[in-house]
């Protein structure tokens, strides 16, 4: 595919632009990019179209954007018993806190698995993945029991509290994502730690000031994954958060469509579009860490 370029690399002189050469270098990437944009974006056009059509059904018609108006957006933003702005804020706080703490707890664990040798290490690593393979059919019942017991004793972190919800999410902090970080930690030469150790740096200092910077790309990825997962969680949040002003976007929005006969798809779609914005924004912001890691890694 790019074989044309092999000779040109070492000769940096300007050469006339040819489509063939451009296509060989980056053009084909754009072609793939456009195909993928259509593939990933097209089904979502239905959602966008439904959100702009105040009486819209989701899949009733293939004539997208037959009506364009912002009534559905106005409806969810102004509805008195759907405090959308509040849900939005709650979601960002809960998902933000959860993802930061998940990254932190996960990185701590990944560091110890990667750099230390102790009994139970292999079993521990395997257990982390296996635990998450357990079918979650009864998870909600069990979590409700735990949280209601905790709530009896300590109402501040029990049922119907956001702190409690975050704690439940942190139960999943060690898991597949820890493994991902672990794999990334392993690719960082241990000579770096050893050099620092000889210089007298403590393990905590090595971890916080050296290693964490080197693994920034994977921290950003895990943080984003955790943020998205938390934002989209409905099952746990709907059982734990009872008061409307404490709920998250997913819980609030699902109520709009949970009764099929009264489902308000345009409002739900509008909410989903708005809910996707922080995820997009976070990804745009984190991209520089995810890809910027390339240069940071090669410095060392």
């Amino acid at each position: 595919m790019t074989s044309v370029d092999e000779g040109t690399r070492v000769i940096p002189q300007k050469r006339p632009f040819t489509f063939k050469r451009w296509f060989g270098r980056t053009g084909w990437r754009h072609a793939i990019g456009i195909v993928m944009v259509v593939f990933s974006g097209f089904p979502l056009l239905y959602v966008l179209s439904a959100s702009l059509n105040p009486q819209g059904t989701l899949t009733g018609s293939n004539e997208l954007f037959s009506q364009v108006g912002f009534e559905a957006y106005a409806r969810i933003l102004n509805s008195p018993d759907a405090p959308f702005a509040q849900w939005f804020g709650n979601t960002i706080v809960i998902a933000g806190t959860t993802s930061i703490l998940t990254v932190f707890l996960g990185a701590l664990a990944a560091y110890s698995f990667s750099r230390m040798r102790f009994t139970g290490r292999r079993v521990g690593l395997l257990t982390l993945v296996l635990v998450q393979m357990f079918p979650q059919l009864l998870a909600v019942v069990a979590i409700f029991l735990v949280m209601s017991t905790i709530g009896d004793l300590f109402p501040a972190i029990g049922l119907n509290t956001q702190v409690g919800l975050i704690m439940v999410y942190l139960g999943g902090a060690l898991g597949v994502n820890t493994y991902l970080m672990y794999g990334f930690f392993n690719t960082i030469p241990s000579s770096i730690d050893e050099a620092a150790k000889i210089d007298g740096a403590s393990h905590a200092r090595i971890f916080f000031t050296i290693i964490l910077r080197l693994v920034a790309p994977i921290l950003a990825v895990v943080g984003l994954l955790s943020f998205i997962a938390t934002t989209n969680d409905f099952v746990v949040a709907s059982v734990l958060l009872i008061d409307p002003e404490k709920q998250t976007l997913a819980v609030g929005l699902y109520k709009l469509v949970s009764n099929p006969n009264y489902a308000d798809w345009s409002a739900f779609s509008a909410g989903a579009v708005l809910a996707a914005l922080p995820v997009m924004a976070l990804f745009l912001y984190l991209q520089k860490y995810i890809v910027g890691g390339l240069t940071a890694g090669s410095d060392k």
């Binding site: 982390l128 998870a139 060690l174």
Partner: peptide, 25 residues
Amino acid sequence: KLPAKYLTPGVIFLVVFQIFVVGYT
């Protein structure tokens, strides 16, 4: 006990909210 220092926080949440779910099921 370095490994324990790094693992304990995550493991506590794991045990309370995930292992318990498995055990309860």
